[in-house]
Design a protein around this nucleic acid. Sequence first.
DNA 1: TCAACTGTACCGTCTGGACGGTATACTCGC
DNA 2: GCGAGTATACCGTCCAGACGGTACAGTTGA
Lengths: 179, 179
Amino acid sequence: MASAKDRILDNFEDILIKEGERAATMDAVAAAAGVSKGGLLYHFPSKEAMVEGLCNRLAELSAEDAERISSAPEGAARYYVRTSNYVDSPLDRAIVALARLVQQGHPAAANTFAQIQELWLETLELALGSRPVAQAVKLIGDGLYFSATFFSPDAQQNQMADGEMEALLQQVDALVGRG
Amino acid sequence: MASAKDRILDNFEDILIKEGERAATMDAVAAAAGVSKGGLLYHFPSKEAMVEGLCNRLAELSAEDAERISSAPEGAARYYVRTSNYVDSPLDRAIVALARLVQQGHPAAANTFAQIQELWLETLELALGSRPVAQAVKLIGDGLYFSATFFSPDAQQNQMADGEMEALLQQVDALVGRG
DNA sequence: TCAACTGTACCGTCTGGACGGTATACTCGC
DNA sequence: GCGAGTATACCGTCCAGACGGTACAGTTGA
């Protein structure tokens, strides 16, 4: 089995995504992760520490993703937009979970988030050779996350149909083509 | 002075935007609105009722906005994207405030939100004559709200520079031009 | 007179976290 | 090879404070 720490973070994410920040109490996370409250507090001595754990996880995952954006055969723009559609990947989950915390005004989470936003914009600008185009592409991706952030509880429901996504990607091609 | 009900909703919004859902307690809202807790409960007999009040406010404001989208001289796409940049208008505030509640899994808020998303997409599609283009434009706008949702506490900081916005609008023109 | 409050006292529930205890594995001097 | 000590990984209980909400008696301006 995964380490207890990972299991706790997984379940913390899960509750944040499905039920919101308010439901993600220490008790609820402990119960979901199959440990006692005392056990949880052994691994993360405070809720703050648990949030920090999630921040670190997101930072790692998004750094990996930035590399994939740069080296995607289909092109950075297409890759970025396509993968912005919520598919419940580890990165998707970490983003949406942390987004919930940012919305509660959590400073550490907001910091992490600001950093990865910056990272992505720079990565796109470098790949696409234009800041306005990079910005437009990033905003489309952000828009997709925005929707995911709102309707993710029934993740299946709000996923774009394949055809719809391809149509959107063609709009992206049009933007980038004008570079 | 505005009616007490409006003042209460204004301050409810304000706390939601600046400090998150968790900080928006009945006590905090009452204090901010300058009424006693008993007074707040006189106007809104429960927190649920207060949320409903905010939902109704947003529904009204967004219906008005939809009309403005359709009839904007600069074109629906430009108008939609330009006004998606957070400028602390009554509509902006209502959206971001309710977004906080949706993120907490609040069903009434989620419902209202889903409805106005639908309304905007339909309005854009009607005006632009293409669903994929409407979707791309709407996503760019959503992306702008997404950013606002994250960094609105220091609203000045994250506002786009005029030049940046104009550059973005030219990307939008490019999308729509191909309609 | 009456709606629109204020102020206070209170209740049941939930929350983060402190705390003391326990089982097990490992290390180390002898 | 063995007893003592230490570190790790938990468990279960308790607590102060915050929360939404109730109840109700009193005040005030039109």
